[in-house]
Simulated scan of single mutants.
Amino acid sequence: MKQILITNDDGFDAIGIKALIKALSPIAKLTVVAPAKNKSACGHSLTLDKPLRMENVKDDFYKIDDGSPTDCMFISIHNLFKDGYKPDLVVSGINIGANMGEDITYSGTAAAAMEAVLHGIPAIAISQVCKDRCNDIKNGWDFELAKDIISKIAKKILKDEFPIGKRKFLNINIPPIKKDECKGIKITKAGYREYGNDTSRHLNPRGEEYYWIGLHPLIWKESKNKDCDFEAIKANYVSISPIKLDMTSYEDINRLNEWI
Rank of each mutant, 00 (worst) to 15 (best):
C72S: 11
K186T: 00
M100D: 01
I121K: 08
E181P: 01
K166D: 05
S249Q: 09
V57F: 13
S127Y: 03
W212E: 10
K2P: 14
Y210F: 15
L5Q: 04
I240H: 12
I185A: 01
L145V: 02
G140V: 05
F81W: 15
A28M: 06
D65L: 11
Y250W: 07
A19N: 04
L118S: 10
D9Y: 01
I77K: 09
I124A: 11
L24S: 05
K178Q: 07
P26F: 10
D49E: 14
L52H: 15
I137A: 02
L170F: 08
D180L: 01
H78T: 12
S241H: 02
I185D: 03
S40K: 13
D10Q: 09
S45T: 15
G93M: 12
W141N: 05
V117A: 07
K221N: 07
F169A: 01
S68H: 06
D103H: 13
S45A: 14
I253L: 10
H119D: 09
I150P: 01
S127F: 00
D83V: 01
I126S: 09
E102W: 01
P242N: 05
S127W: 00
E231A: 12
T70E: 09
D246T: 10
I27D: 10
L218W: 05
P26V: 08
R133F: 09
I177C: 10
T31I: 14
K58Q: 14
I157P: 01
K22S: 14
A112N: 08
L158I: 02
M73A: 10
K58S: 13
L89G: 09
K86H: 07
D13S: 07
D142I: 03
K168T: 11
I21H: 08
G101V: 09
A98T: 11
T248C: 14
D180T: 05
I185N: 02
C42K: 07
Y192P: 00
V91F: 15
M247T: 10
P35L: 09
I243P: 04
K186F: 06
N8K: 07
L203W: 01
Q3D: 02
K63A: 12
F162C: 04
N171H: 00
N99G: 09
D59G: 11
L89N: 08
D10K: 13
G93Y: 10
G84C: 13
V32C: 14
I75S: 08
L89A: 12
N254R: 07
F143P: 04
L218K: 06
G120N: 12
K189E: 11
R201W: 05
K50S: 12
A125F: 04
F81M: 13
K58G: 06
L215S: 14
D13H: 08
A146D: 03
L256S: 07
G214E: 11
M73Y: 08
S40I: 14
N99Q: 15
K226Q: 13
G108S: 09
K58Y: 09
G214R: 13
I96W: 04
D66W: 05
K152T: 00
H119L: 14
G120S: 10
D252R: 01
G140R: 10
L118T: 15
G196Q: 05
N254L: 12
S127A: 15
G165D: 03
E251V: 01
A41I: 10
N225Y: 15
F230P: 01
G165L: 03
